[in-house]
Design a protein around this nucleic acid. Structure first.
Lengths: 252, 252
DNA sequence: TCCCTCCGTTCATAATGATGAACGCCGTTC
DNA sequence: GAACGGCGTTCATCATTATGAACGGAGGGA
């Protein structure tokens, strides 16, 4: 994505990534076009990937990934469990935002905080590992709720009103559902001082193999640091992490 | 392993493969030493792999694979089933030997042939897809038997004698067990005109996730072409395929 | 059938990566 | 605490890779 030291390697790996998104394979010119490479350069790289057997050529002259990439990757997964997967992607996202991050699991009507990485900035969020928070007042929680149907959400809060934690806490289920709809659209949840003063959070939920929400990630920062732009960046960061983690979990 | 067109890409991918065999990670100098690279070259490549996030640096300055390789590889597997996995590795092995290959499943006391690739040489084996053969008279079958205990094998043939298909067919269970022991040692089975005249085969069994023999691959050739050396080559080829397929199946 | 286009391949040259030597850092030894 | 050895990093120079242009073949339309 960014500027890498070594062009050749960068390109080779990008080709593998590209092919992974095209199970039916791509022709040489398609690869060249997609990565804006001269066809002769693409040709050279594909020859190498062929002889190394990362790629094969179908009878229709389409390049397809072989299982070799999977062989290599699978070795990592053998020695990795779910929490390590979450932590690894949390670390990657952290490297891109340097704000306190949390990881939580869905536990009834609450989110249970199970892991954190603390920002190195002098003004930062305190940690929450081990505690529980109501779903409706946290970014992670709202991300969880957004993965449920409206009926499921209403069933969680039959009273219809939501006990306030701050004066910004969402007051009732109707307001909550309105927000969830926006969250579903956008792909990430946010929470602005609804849980504690001067703290803003962004969160996403991770679906397990069964398609049910299982884990969540969040980025928390002092509200003054969470500009509109930063919010968008963090949201995009988390959405990317979500997609990747889900892909890994599906095969785990 | 061999001569690839592009040195840079070759090296980068080899590093990924190397790291996949070292879950705890390797230090820069270890990588350089292992691949006989100057440390400055290794350094350059590792920097690239770092920025591309295929690799991360632990606090102890060890390079470890991230899950990115797995993400890429997992995409292939999503659209692949077991028979396609087998066929893919069969094709790779075929490219290295150009002799008729078969793939079979264990079915009671027989091996059921489910797929083939025919040699392009003018003198070649006829195809066997869909037929069944006794375990004791085929390379695939003996490979299956070699994955069982002696007791299990004896239980399959309580009579102790084995109906001959040619005059070379192994005559009884005792002789069979002797051969199975050698097969276990060597890692691959062979069969020399025990099933049909002038045909020699090499075979390996593939263990499923449950650790039980499930599939087998074989290479068949006219006996005159199966020199001692070629036999060894084909055996090694199949053993490699076996290892890889099992690794993939384990994560499938 | 002929022409045209599109695709993959090849090749000489320009751009980029590889390398060993030198540097700085740290921990260890004497 | 001085000297040494091992490690990662940097840099100038040389070897390899990237590239555009040219080639040849396959398919399609007129």
């Amino acid at each position: 994505m960014t500027e890498a030291a070594n062009r050749t390697l960068q390109r080779g790996l990008t080709i593998l990534e590209l092919l992974s998104e095209h199970p039916d394979g791509l022709e040489l010119h398609e690869i060249a076009k997609e990565l804006s490479l001269p066809k002769s350069s693409a040709h050279n790289l594909m020859q190498t990937l062929l002889t190394l057997r990362y790629v094969r050529l179908t009878p229709a002259s389409r390049y397809q990934l072989t299982l070799k990439t999977f062989e290599v990757g699978a070795a990592v997964v053998q020695t990795t469990d779910v929490t390590q997967v979450l932590r690894q992607y949390m670390q990657q996202a952290f490297a891109d935002c340097n704000e306190t991050m949390h990881c939580g699991v869905l536990s009834g009507k609450e989110v249970l905080y199970i892991d954190k990485i603390e920002s190195t900035q002098s003004i930062r969020m305190a940690s929450h590992v081990g505690i529980r928070m109501p779903l409706y007042a946290t970014a992670m929680g709202k991300a969880f709720l957004a993965e449920m149907t409206d009926d499921e959400v209403r069933a969680l809060y039959p009273e219809g009103t939501l006990p306030p934690l701050t004066d910004r806490t969402i007051p009732d289920v109707d307001a909550l559902l309105t927000q969830l709809s926006a969250i579903r659209q956008r792909g990430w949840a946010m929470e602005d001082q609804e849980n504690a003063e001067n703290v803003s959070c962004v969160g996403v939920a991770i679906l397990g193999r069964d398609g049910r929400p299982a884990y969540a990630l969040s980025i928390s920062a002092p509200s003054f640091r969470m500009t509109e732009e930063r919010l968008e960046n963090c949201g995009a960061l988390l959405r990317r992490a979500k997609r990747r983690i889900e892909r890994v979990l599906r095969a785990l």
